[in-house]
Design a protein around this nucleic acid. Structure first.
Lengths: 223, 223
DNA sequence: ATAAATATTCACCAATTCATCACATTTTGA
DNA sequence: TCAAAATGTGATGAATTGGTGAATATTTAT
């Protein structure tokens, strides 16, 4: 099940794609233009984007350019026959595939599958990395660097950090953190979690306030 | 254990499905036609609906259309071979799956499981966000922003606000609010609730009058 | 086996939060 | 219109909560 962001200004096309992606069991969300898409991408995550080239406000090409600055995500473009053929084939943008309108929905579905298969294979070989300014967290290598400088952490700190990262921008209760990071059967002092958060924050130096305390609840990692 | 609503006009089919769903440990209820189903849905809640397409009074497609206006619930359709094949595949309706008659009960059970798994995952991954103009309430992240500016609140304010939001446009009595937000056993001063509503309103700035006082009753959050 | 690293517990502190109170204001209905 | 009832408000002290450093226990590495 993939999460799909559909970006098109034409209601008819949007509805058509949504119908079919819903049927295939994908979860999809709609953006009505490039700007809108960028806003949505700031909050939610998706596995693939299907985007029209011709759009008001911010056209498909420009939107792709902006998106690729922020995240690495496969994109399938919808183009009218002959529309900027060169640009699509030029690949300056990192488009993964394109479909010429009018298209058979079935064909689009097949292309989604194909692109995702390709991308997943590529991802497996790729490292899971998250970056914010000079802070770089490499989950695959289990390393954290700030300003090119490797930060040494204890196992629990890594576990905690990676769990935070996996659930960024989500309010996590103390219980949830304890059961997920320590194990469902852990029974411990109230201050254990605090203490590890303290250590993790210390390790994160200037980035310590990425971990926000939610009084009476737990913590939230802001990404 | 899921609660299933079976909608079919044929006694034989109803009995067959019920037998199997009972066997699987699901709780099921029967509706004999579309109208009947809508009436039942007004009173009781279910996790999934299994519905025949061909029915007197109100056919399957029309019934689905009505249901989807009211609630978001997964639906599996039963169709005779070749019956309105296009419509099912067109998916204007948001059907989650379909089974062609005659079917093996085992297959239907498997499809129920599959649909429910998909639906639960979708529900879990969804962020709970509510927006009105520049006010954005992210229940998942436990944040409130007005005009892009993060609003800092106390735990009780968040709890109260989220409870209001979950029950927006519903008159909530003081007792209800106290027992739900403070706990069923809370015994406190008359002014406690007022005071927190006051603080919450203050935090909501221009949006303070989303919380409407219902004299002699309690409050209502208008969304 | 021993030292070092890590994890947990503990005691205490500072900050926040909350319930309560006294009083102000508003609404209702006689 | 006026008094009673209901709700709003600001202040305050007590209670809760999370942060912190140090002590202690446990695990890991040498």
């Amino acid at each position: 099940m993939y999460r799909i962001l559909i970006v098109d200004d034409e209601e008819k096309i949007r509805a058509l794609i949504k119908k079919y992606t819903d049927f295939e069991g994908y979860e999809s969300k709609i953006a009505t233009n490039g700007m809108n898409a960028l806003e949505i991408l700031k909050i939610e995550t998706f596995d693939i984007i299907i985007m029209d080239i011709m759009m008001p406000e911010l056209d498909g090409f420009s939107t792709v350019k902006e998106i690729k600055k922020i995240i690495d995500i496969p994109i399938i473009m919808l183009s009218a026959r002959g529309e900027e053929y060169d640009k699509i084939h030029g690949f300056e943008l990192g488009i993964d595939d394109y479909v010429v309108k009018p298209f058979a929905p079935k064909e689009l579905m097949m292309r989604i599958e194909a692109v995702m298969n390709r991308y997943n294979k590529y991802k497996k070989e790729k490292r899971e990395i998250w970056q914010k300014d000079t802070l770089l967290i490499d989950v695959t290598a289990r390393t954290v660097t700030i300003n090119e400088k490797k930060i040494q952490m204890s196992p629990k700190e890594y576990d905690l950090l990676f769990y935070f990262l996996k659930n960024k921008n989500i309010a996590l209760t103390r219980e949830q953190l304890i059961t997920e990071v320590w194990g469902y059967d852990y029974i411990g002092d109230d201050r254990t979690l605090d203490t590890h958060v303290k250590l993790l924050r210390k390790s994160l130096e200037n980035y310590s306030d990425l971990i926000v305390t939610l009084r009476g609840v737990g913590y939230r990692f802001e990404g």
